[in-house]
């Protein structure tokens, strides 16, 4: 799976330092992909799924992720389900989590101002190079070159789950059928792994996801339904 990753480091650090920080980010994301990709035959996730590994043989990272996903299954009333597709697939959490970890490491290493986007899941910290807050657009779910919201944000995670790129790929685990009622779900908040899982779960819930999203503490959302209704939290940081 080819995922485009964009990193912008806005701290006025020496170039070789910036290069090193960027290399570390990509090395981490490569490592995550090796371990968790369901598209790599010999990833740890796939080997566990096939029974070639026992859970007790698995890395601390994988077991930690699965533990978090179990909690998310409970928190989403079963709608975030790593087995929803019939095989183990935690990518609805892993994508966001891996970017959050990378962003945390950048901040710890002294890069307090950055934008990291992996396949549409975004962490922004501090401000852009111009000194202003980061501006992140939410893709319009029909018009590919347009945005439907622009967010003015700092120290924020932004996750979007949608059906307009890969089709109805999110499965409603209760009906074991693709969820179709929501076309795009964006969740913003302090943690990108959770935001990613919440967006995925809400998509799986269909229209009931609208009510559920409204109850999340500390996370805001923007949703576009398949019939082109547009709804958002009051506190989504729109421009």
């Amino acid at each position: 799976m080819g995922t485009e990753i964009v990193l912008e480091l806005a701290d006025p650090l020496p170039v070789d330092e910036l290069q090193r920080l960027a290399d570390d980010v990509f090395a981490w994301l490569h490592e995550v992909d090796r371990r968790f990709s369901t598209y790599k035959a010999d990833s740890e996730v796939n080997r566990l799924d096939r029974g070639e590994l026992a859970l007790s043989d698995c890395s601390a990272e994988l077991t930690g992720v699965l533990d978090t996903c179990a909690g998310l299954w409970r928190a989403t009333d079963g709608y975030f389900d790593v087995y929803a597709t019939g095989r183990l697939d935690p990518s609805g959490f892993v994508k966001g989590w891996s970017v959050q970890v990378a962003s945390d490491r950048l901040a710890a290493a002294g890069a307090a101002n950055h934008y990291l986007n992996a396949g549409g899941d975004v962490c922004v910290r501090g401000h852009s190079a111009t000194g202003e807050a980061w501006r992140v657009g939410i893709r319009h779910p029909w018009q590919t070159d347009k945005t439907c919201w622009v967010l003015d944000c700092t120290d924020l995670a932004i996750a979007t789950s949608g059906t307009y790129e890969r089709g109805y790929h999110v499965i409603d685990p209760r009906r074991a059928e693709p969820a179709t009622a929501l076309r795009s779900v964006t969740v913003t908040g302090p943690d990108l792994g959770l935001a990613d899982a919440y967006a995925t779960a809400a998509l799986a819930m269909g229209l009931a996801g609208l009510d559920w999203l409204a109850t999340l503490d500390g996370y805001a959302c923007g949703v576009v339904t398949q019939d082109a209704r547009c709804l958002r939290s009051d506190d989504l940081p729109v421009v």
């Binding site: 799976m1 080819g2 995922t3 485009e4 964009v6 912008e8 994508k95 934008y115 986007n117 396949g119 549409g120 899941d121 975004v122 980061w134 501006r135 992140v136 657009g137 939410i138 893709r139 319009h140 779910p141 018009q143 070159d145 347009k146 945005t147 439907c148 622009v150 967010l151 932004i158 996750a159 979007t160 789950s161 949608g162 059906t163 307009y164 790129e165 890969r166 795009s184 964006t186 576009v224 082109a228 209704r229 547009c230 709804l231 958002r232």
Partner: peptide, 19 residues
């Protein structure tokens, strides 16, 4: 609210995962 389509010079976009 109304679904609006904005053209902007935003290069930073959150969207569904794409290949």
């Amino acid at each position: 609210e109304a679904l609006t389509a904005q053209s902007s010079n935003i290069t930073k976009v959150s969207g569904a995962t794409y290949y």
